[in-house]
Write a protein that binds this DNA or RNA. Structure first.
Lengths: 234, 234
DNA sequence: GGTGAAATGTGATTAAAATCAATTTTCGAA
DNA sequence: TTCGAAAATTGATTTTAATCACATTTCACC
């Protein structure tokens, strides 16, 4: 059972996984003609803000943070991409440089699709370009949500909300009743919520004391989603 | 002369105006087959969050704020659309309900294009759908920027930055040396920056005393863009 | 031009979050 | 298993922003 009836998780998720799944074989072949597969260790950079894009990346397995760093070194995570998702297409389609940096959050297997193949596939496949249009316009919903949340909700509320989202993203072979292990550094969590590490630590402690989560080292287990949702004030 | 070499204004601007300009006549005809033109007074709603989209809107003249309201009534402006821009396409393309509300900021003339015509035009015109892809993916750049800014910059910095952006948006028949009149309520300015009205008022006062702007009633005139840019810490 | 509601502006106070300075824990490499 | 660097945590303090309570100004309308 999902929590989508309690919390609109799709408002926090791009839908890039829907791009490739079920695409006609010919289109798949076109896209996959010259792919290369790479292994990324935790913290390895996939692409860097400001560089010229050379292709797109399909995350076969793993998690990638997309983030911007300001001049004081503070990171803001724009989006956390999961297994099955694609990244790097914005820059190619907008004909700009990468607007942000992508780095693996954990050991990840990623397929690289060269620019030419991707653009050609779009050129030839109406299905593909229509799916991209649908997906990209959905991103507006996600961002409108993020912006409103960042602007008007407290750090505590935002952290509660993100934990609910992360619980979904860290589900793997999930069975009802299982605890989901959220394995993310405090710094990354801070970058996701948009605050300093210290605040994250303190509020996590509150959540623990209020019986919403348990922690084991850096790992976080959500033990009461409903209470968390309440705390998020959503 | 523009300030784009000092400040990347395009990172604050969607590029929806580029959609229609220069589109082949046949595509234009397709799109414009069943349009209706409407006049909106200040504060009139163009469409409302949560409703089913029935078409898109081309702003012939005027300005429209796109915003979300939280349960305490606080508005967050997601984007300020200007003359020549289109709004309402996200919901149609993503097949969702409107993710935000649109309301005229000033007397505006807006052309309505019905859903069917818009979707048909995309279906038939490769040029149009490719332009949409380009535009939508550029929006990611804008939002990544907004999110990072909201998360890590002070209200003072954000206000300074927005004033620079607004100065561009309120340019009309601009001649070098002219002062641009920014005519926006303090509440809307607060909604754009993501803070409370009182903070806006206080910081505007600082900016006035520091010789960056002048005010006349609600109207704001930027008198020193460079100082503002410095204050924005960009 | 006068009038009143709405918008703008001011001051004081409270609350939230950022920052600074350590200390403790964790976890991978030797 | 031990060691040491990196990460996480805690506490104290400062800064920033939100909130509350009014005062003043503006501006559309009569």
């Amino acid at each position: 059972m999902s929590i989508s009836h309690l919390f609109p998780i799709d408002k926090w998720d791009f839908k890039t996984h829907s791009i490739l799944t079920g695409l006609p074989p010919e289109e798949i072949n076109l896209l996959m003609a010259h792919t290369t597969v790479h292994q990324y260790a935790r913290n390895d950079t996939v692409f860097r803000e400001g560089t010229v894009p050379s292709g797109i990346f399909f995350i076969r397995n793993g998690k990638v943070k997309k983030y911007k760093t300001d001049k004081f070194g503070r990171e803001q995570i724009i989006y956390l991409a999961n297994t099955g998702e694609i990244i790097g297409y914005h820059a190619l389609l907008s004909e700009e440089r990468y607007p942000d940096t992508a780095a693996a959050l954990e050991e990840s297997t990623i397929t690289f699709i060269p620019k030419e193949d991707f653009l050609q596939a779009i050129e030839r496949s109406k299905v593909l370009s229509q799916r991209l249009l649908k997906m990209l316009s959905h991103e507006y919903t996600v961002f409108a949500n993020s912006v409103a949340t960042l602007a008007h909700r407290s750090v505590r509320e935002r952290l509660a909300m993100q934990l609910v989202v992360l619980r979904e993203k860290y589900k793997e072979n999930y069975q009802p009743g299982m605890l989901v292990e959220i394995n993310l550094s405090r710094d990354d969590l801070a970058g996701l919520v948009g605050t300093a590490r210290e605040n994250i630590v303190r509020i996590l402690k509150e959540f623990r004391e209020e019986g919403m989560i348990e922690t084991k080292g850096r790992k976080i287990f959500v033990t009461d989603v409903h209470k968390l949702l309440q705390a998020s004030n959503y």
